[in-house]
Nucleic acid binder design. Structure first.
Lengths: 246, 246
DNA sequence: AAGTGGTCTAGACCACACT
DNA sequence: GTGTGGTCTAGACCACTTG
């Protein structure tokens, strides 16, 4: 399972190996829906590790809504529901599995470097820093679906060029810059379409959009993005799993 | 911090005590935004526990979006953003903190016991079980905001009466029955208002709503609720934090 | 009573950041 | 180099359910 990253041999931690393996077993119905999987001691012996490592791996799957652990009883596979949303840097990544890049298109409406207004600077937690301002239209088969307004500090994401925007900014950040995403704080609401929405998303006077506001963190603790995306309501769907941890 | 539950002395685990204490320190700005909190060894000494217990407590706060941990650097308090959504059994619990029960009203439109149609039975993962069907209108200051369609198996939630519906079903389940919620799988989308929405939410022909679909699990592994809530778009807001754990 | 998950420890070692 | 978080172990004991 080891890979080469940045020219170095990268060996994933044991709990991640166990996590991946059990996740595969669930997805391939080797561990069947609503059934119990082997107990912690057995798994620890099977994977040649401690119980705690097994628990850590299983807890990840609980967090993703794939397992439920019941004290005194066992660990069970949940009904196969919509899995937890991965962080959608792309805003359209839900589709990127369904549609190849041939069908996806990003049209850059505006790409400039600005001094952020106070409101944006606060969201990005910066002072006196230049930022990129990006306005993009995301389409599937030339059908416009998402109008995206993105702000990113230059010093956090250096070297961003217009051609990156025509593809995936996410790919640039993770693959070319080698950064990892830590988290995203999001907020979802509905609203009437504004003039830009009507213009670019081909909406009529009476239409509505779903607005997804997002603040994204890198693993180094820096906020790298604040964005507002307006989604045509008929193509928007957001799935997630909330787990009670306390 | 110990409490009496079901006539027994309940002593919370150490990591939960630490979690609560640090959460309070963040909310009261004893640990300030963007600043580093003490390292794991110090906290372990301070709380008289092992490093692992501290890590477990801090990881909960990372999951809630309040902290960020950086290997080699430290643990930092994040910008105070909207916290992670708690499981909203109530559908209106976001308001229950803002508005007292005097302002909140639940009007029961339908409360019946039925044999579920196939689609609902599948969502609830049951066969040959009777279920409650509940249609409620939730209002704030007599302003109708949410139309809620709920299905619950009788054998999972016994003894539900109409007067419970006028208050909070959540309170009945957690306080009177003493059950705990494990998780909720949710899905959010927008849609045009249907005839019921127009009727009960006072919408016009052109209006639209936000639909929140939800499947809820108890700690005993049973699904106790499948619901669809239609929210007037101008009063809907959903916040959450997505954390990259893998 | 037996089985299973949950909590917790003390300590070891590694990976990474900072300076 | 020092400090910090991340991983991992072996084992102990507790809480809960009943496969």
């Amino acid at each position: 399972m080891e890979t080469i990253e940045k020219g170095r041999l990268y060996m994933p931690p044991k709990y991640k190996v166990v996590y991946e393996d059990i996740k595969n077993k669930i997805n391939n119905y080797i561990y069947k829906t609503n059934e119990k999987i082997p107990d912690g001691d057995s798994l620890a012996e099977c994977y040649n590790c401690s119980k705690l490592t097994i628990a850590k791996a299983l807890d990840l799957l609980v967090q993703e809504g794939m397992l439920i652990r019941r004290q005194g009883s066992g660990t069970y596979v949940k009904e196969n529901l919509s899995n937890r949303t991965t962080i959608e840097l792309d805003n359209i990544s839900g589709y990127s599995k369904k549609f190849s890049t041939e069908h996806l298109k990003s049209t850059v409406i505006d790409f400039s470097i600005i001094t952020p207004p106070k409101e944006i600077a606060e969201k990005l937690n910066i002072t006196d820093e230049y930022i990129y301002k990006i306005l993009r239209l995301r389409s599937v088969d030339n059908d416009p679906q998402i109008l995206e307004e993105t702000y990113m500090p230059i010093y956090v994401i250096p070297g961003l060029k217009e051609h990156h925007l025509e593809g995936s900014i996410y790919d640039y950040i993770t693959n070319e810059l080698g950064f990892k995403i830590q988290s995203a704080h999001i907020s979802i609401k509905g609203d009437e379409a504004n003039s830009n929405d009507k213009l670019y998303l081909n909406l009529t006077e009476s239409d509505f959009i779903i607005e997804l506001e997002k603040i994204c963190y890198l693993e180094n603790g820096k906020i790298f993005e604040y964005s507002k995306t307006h989604h045509r309501y008929d193509v928007f769907k957001f799935n997630t799993v909330l787990v009670n941890n306390i």
